[in-house]
Design a protein around this nucleic acid. Structure first.
Lengths: 197, 197
DNA sequence: CTTATTACTATCCACATGGATAGAAATAGC
DNA sequence: GCTATTTCTATCCATGTGGATAGTAATAAG
């Protein structure tokens, strides 16, 4: 009963993800979105309600995928897996190009002030979910006797969140590959220091 | 032999510092700069060479002041002073308003991509100077026997840089006072865990 | 095939931006 | 007091922005 869209929702979101990733929310213009997503500015307005609404959809999709596929697994991860996860953050495979550095949720923290509740809740979702994973893994490791008794899982989880955000910042700040890896190594060393014996 | 300017350089820079701090580089328009600094857009062009050049001057002034007055002192700081310094980062006195959160150099990391060498060198200056302070303090603490032998000062300094950048990110991300303080406390706990005995 | 509905194309718009410019006003040296 | 020099005031400008709109094209139901 109507004309077909040139692009389906999913591939539009995928294109937008890439663009927002590289250019940031404010750096990506609606004209660029047209090209990268296959959507028209018209459709961006009529069916998504404009640039920001569409960005939120994109961010949601990103977080869904991150939680399902990239966050550390609270059920199975041991301490060494967690250390490996931190190494993976700065690995070349995941960060093929400098401008790809970062995570869309992390970037949103600096792209927006906290005046928009819609953005805020998504940032909260990112932080609490990730910190929860950290805490669960550390808590389980403690029960298993893998980490020293003085280490408080919740506090250690906050340290890891801090280090992760710092690592993302370093990746933005220092373009050379060398820097992020040495900071990731420092995080790994810290985690290893929590081990028993 | 010429007309006097309404504002002197120093107070113009002070006003700009405040504005760039609150609104960010891109958020601060040249019209706002006029009001906050007392400079005219004309003078901004003719004597400072435009918005970005003036921002760099402001950033330089900020870094000069930070190094001279706010960075931890490598000569005298003990481990407890360092811990106190981290607590001070999130203290209410230094962060009276939410939107004041952050450090101008830190904010510059996300405000610019790395395409401008002038900005990059200043970010490098910030990171290397601060990491150097951390490393010096930790190194001295090790010589004094204040920290455990397994702790590598250089690696620990990178951990602290990571945590500091993470702390700044948290302050941007979570407006409630409660969050940053618990993360700062986690950093303090970490530092205390490095102590001997 | 007709028709209602939706998306596409092509403009148009108001607004904000950093910057440029021209004439008026102030100021220090002579 | 004259004059050269610099700043100030007041526009003007080109550009890019997100968004709106009107006419056209496609498409599925009837």
């Amino acid at each position: 009963m109507a004309r077909k869209r040139k692009t389906d929702h999913d591939s539009a979101v995928a294109g937008a993800l890439d663009l927002f990733w590289r250019r940031g929310y404010h750096g990506a213009s609606t004209r660029e979105l047209e090209q990268q997503t296959g959507l028209t500015r018209f459709t961006l307005q009529t069916t998504y309600g404009g640039k920001e609404k569409f960005f939120l959809k994109t961010l949601d999709a990103y977080l869904d995928n991150a939680e399902a596929r990239h966050f550390p697994d609270p059920e199975t991860y041991a301490l060494d897996d967690l250390a490996g996860w931190f190494r993976g953050i700065v690995s070349a495979e995941r960060m093929p190009k400098i401008e790809d550095a970062g995570c869309l949720a992390f970037n949103s923290i600096s792209s927006f002030d906290r005046s928009d509740p819609e953005v805020n809740t998504r940032i909260e979702r990112y932080l609490t979910a990730l910190e929860g994973r950290f805490a669960a893994i550390l808590s389980r490791a403690k029960v298993d006797g893998a980490i020293r008794s003085e280490v408080d899982p919740d506090e250690a989880a906050r340290v890891l969140i801090g280090l992760l955000l710092g690592l993302h910042t370093i990746m933005k700040a220092r373009t050379s590959d060398q820097f992020p890896q040495s900071y990731a190594q420092a995080a790994v060393g810290l985690i290893e220091g929590w081990k028993n014996q």
